[in-house]
Amino acid sequence: MIAIIDYGMGNLRSVQKGFEKVGHKAGVTSDRQKILDADKVVLPGVGAFADCMNNLDRLGLADTVRKVIASGRPFMGICLGLQLLFEEGEEFGVHKGLGILKGRVVRFPAELPGNNEQIYKIPHMGWNRIKIRNRPPHLKGVEDGGFFYFVHSYYVVPQDGSIAATTTEYGLEFVSSVWKDNIFAAQFHPEKSQEQGLKILKAFGEIE
């Protein structure tokens, strides 16, 4: 069973239905015990960094996430679920994250060097390519250069660049997913990225 952590942020149904579509059982829950008992855990999330962190804390789920990750079980973060793993985010003031990964979460600069072909608007919203830097089992069968759906205004800057699994170009090159031990976390939304995205959900469910 895959537990999808519900802390009141965003569309969780698509994550659950995505797993079911590729044949994995998944349930949406905010019950700490159920999360701790699950084989695998997913931390999704859209919205503002501070709100999400506050909600996690308020529901007592921040420690649950730390415990799950410390236990070595496969863990996947999506979008804000990636950003929250880092030490701090600067959205609406500087806020502490879970601090499980070293690094920061920063905003795209207001003035990215655009031209007539590409104006860099913020949020970075839509389909963009990933470049695979270090292929984790989660990206099994995923095409290098494939398109994924993004919607975000902030991106992660890991202290240790070697944890970057993929990078993406948007006026600058940013880390679009990380892989470290039992953690895989992506800025893009596998559950909204059609075939390519479902491959990631399938691969995550198959990890031993």
Binding site: N11, S14, Y149, Q194
Partner: peptide
Amino acid sequence: SEQVFMPLTVGGGIKSIDDIRALLKAGCD
């Protein structure tokens, strides 16, 4: 949202925070 895995927008007649919450919960983005 059980069948299609791409971003979905819904418009028309949205009047309250509760309307939005219900749609997001149903699987729209």
